[in-house]
């Protein structure tokens, strides 16, 4: 097994003249909760789209659990769970029907038992037989998370998971991320621009600015390096305006 959960080497993505991602090189070890920070349009979602095999980079290579996301995309997909920014599910189906269908596609064995366990883990068994079309944003996010972890992936990608959630929903999500990392030993890659969430959940951070990685370190080192009196928010803003080695 590869020592790295996620590895990218000089990946770039261009749309015509626009460079969305510029030679991104990134190494993330197993067990990390990695917060990927950046303003809107910095290239965070493009990075997740490449790592989840939805998009092919125009240049460079990327691996998830040692599997090339382009040439060995099916094996890479077996290792990952993915929660998009806006969780879309079949509105006319119940949560359980959605989970059953997506679980079947992931080849989950003993599916009903796994669905029950997952809903229990995410504390949302009461949603099982309700139609997804009736769900609030927070409830939808939970079922979105449930579908992503049904097959117990090694790496979980979350794209702006707290987007649109109220404070209660954000706290629940934060607790879930910590729980998934601790109990199911999942490596978590989280796109966000919410500094507070990063400080409370992540073990390492990367900062992306206009498609370029301008900083990557453990959260502890970042805090130590910039001093106790420096807020993480100021740090984020400063990192986005300078290149840090």
């Amino acid at each position: 097994m590869s020592e790295l959960a996620i590895q990218t080497k000089d990946i770039s993505m261009s749309y015509g003249d626009h460079v969305a991602l510029d030679q991104l090189t990134l190494n993330i070890e197993y067990g990390e909760v990695f917060g990927f920070l950046g303003h809107n349009g910095a290239g965070k979602t493009t990075t997740v789209n490449i790592l989840t095999t939805l998009l092919k980079p125009t240049h460079g290579k990327a691996w998830v659990c040692g599997f090339d996301v382009v040439s060995d995309s099916l094996n890479a997909r077996r290792q990952i769970g993915y929660v998009p920014e806006n969780v879309h599910l079949y509105e006319a189906m119940t949560a359980q029907e959605n989970l059953r269908f997506l679980g079947q596609l992931s080849g989950v064995e003993d599916l009903q038992k796994t669905i029950d366990e997952t809903l229990e883990l995410l504390d949302c068994k009461d949603l099982a037989n309700r139609r997804v079309g009736t769900f609030s944003k927070g409830q939808r996010q939970r079922i979105g998370l449930a579908q992503a972890i049904l097959h117990r992936p090694k790496v979980l990608f979350l794209d702006e998971p707290a987007s649109g959630l109220d404070p209660m929903g954000m706290k629940m999500l934060r607790d879930l991320i910590v729980k998934l990392n601790a109990e199911l030993k999942m490596t978590i890659f989280m796109n966000t621009h919410l500094i507070g969430e990063v400080a409370k959940t992540c073990t390492s951070i990367g900062v992306l600015n206009q498609g370029k990685l301008v900083h990557k370190d453990t959260l502890k080192n970042v805090m130590d390096r910039f001093g106790d009196d420096e807020t993480l928010e100021r740090l984020y803003l400063s990192l986005n305006t300078q290149k840090v080695a």
Binding site: P84, Y90, E91
Partner: peptide, 17 residues
């Protein structure tokens, strides 16, 4: 239906060609 509901990204991230 899949495209409209946005489910296709979830299908495409599954181990199916």
């Amino acid at each position: 239906g899949d495209r409209k509901s946005g489910v296709y990204a979830l299908l495409a991230s599954r181990p199916i060609t």
